[in-house]
Amino acid sequence: MFLLQEDSLEDIINKTTLENPEAGGAVSFEGRVRNINKGKKVTLLEYQVYEEMAVLEGKKVVEEAFKLFPIKDAVCVHRYGQLKIGERAVWILVTSKHRKEAFKACQYIIDEVKNRVPLWKKEFYEDESEAWVECLGCKKGHHHLSP
């Protein structure tokens, strides 16, 4: 399941447990808004989204995780709109029989979301400037190794 939402992720995180008696492992990841990027102090973030495509592409990513890894369940939720420092921008939960597959699938989902899902991030800085975060390295085959 892949979802986009403007509201805080708190409720969905609290309500979604993916309970399954066959699942012995549950791995989650959350990406939070950081207050500094490339030495500049960030005060606010704004995610812009191409909603129709982001939903389709996000669902494809999660479906691929099911095909690649023997997992029981997976959910990924991404926010759009304005986010404050410390807020959760993305949340992933994966369950599997054993922990290894859940770790791998969770890593796959976040990497592919960052690489393919059409969402863009504008940072607003303390000095009142603003800029789109455009990772030109992604196009050259580099993948983000950290959130």
Partner: peptide, 10 residues
């Protein structure tokens, strides 16, 4: 048609 600049989700 949409031209997709480098994405930055996550």
């Amino acid at each position: 048609l949409v031209f997709i600049p480098p994405v930055a989700g996550g």
